[in-house]
């Protein structure tokens, strides 16, 4: 399955992916609206910075899915393609998944006061159709590719 990968050598730390991610998941039709209409648009990707090193982080949709195993209500699930998604109707905001995710990629949804969590779903549920962090990356650092398990392990 195609997943989002980030090339650290190319990531410039501009943080634009965060803004485009938040917009893509905001349900608004313009990025200005998404941020200006007093709604807390939430990114599901975060750029980690340390000096000259920048790295955008979002759900890896990893093979062993500890978040899914830890979910107490079955709100988190993994489909046949390996896409990990969340059913916010079932989420009770226990944050067990937040504690188990080794990459820190489960995001507490501040929009509804932290009552649920949210996460990257590769833009399959929003109007983006394709991952917006990839589409908008100004340096080709974030890519959407089909890699073998071995290639994925090498990155992880």
């Amino acid at each position: 399955m195609k997943r989002v990968y980030v090339n650290e050598n190319r990531c410039l730390g501009c943080h634009l992916c965060e803004y485009w991610c938040a917009f893509a998941n905001s349900g608004e039709d313009s990025i200005v609206k998404a941020f200006k209409l007093n709604r807390e648009a939430m990114p599901r990707i975060n750029v980690e910075d340390s000096g000259e090193i920048h790295f955008a982080v979002q759900c890896r949709h990893c093979n062993d899915t500890p978040c899914v195993k830890a979910c107490i209500t079955g709100a988190l699930s993994v489909d046949n393609d390996g896409l990990v998604s969340i059913d916010t109707e079932r989420c009770v905001g226990c944050y067990t998944c937040v504690l188990t995710c080794p990459y820190g990629c489960i995001v507490i949804d501040e929009k509804n006061g932290g009552k649920t969590v949210t996460k990257c779903e590769l833009c399959v549920k929003n109007a983006g159709n394709e991952p917006w962090c990839v589409k908008q990356c100004i340096n080709g650092a974030i890519v959407f590719e089909d890699r073998t398990n071995a290639e994925r392990q090498a990155v992880l």
Partner: peptide, 14 residues
Amino acid sequence: TDRCIKCRACERQC
């Protein structure tokens, strides 16, 4: 300023 969302990308990239 009606458009600026203060993402600060301009600041980071200049």
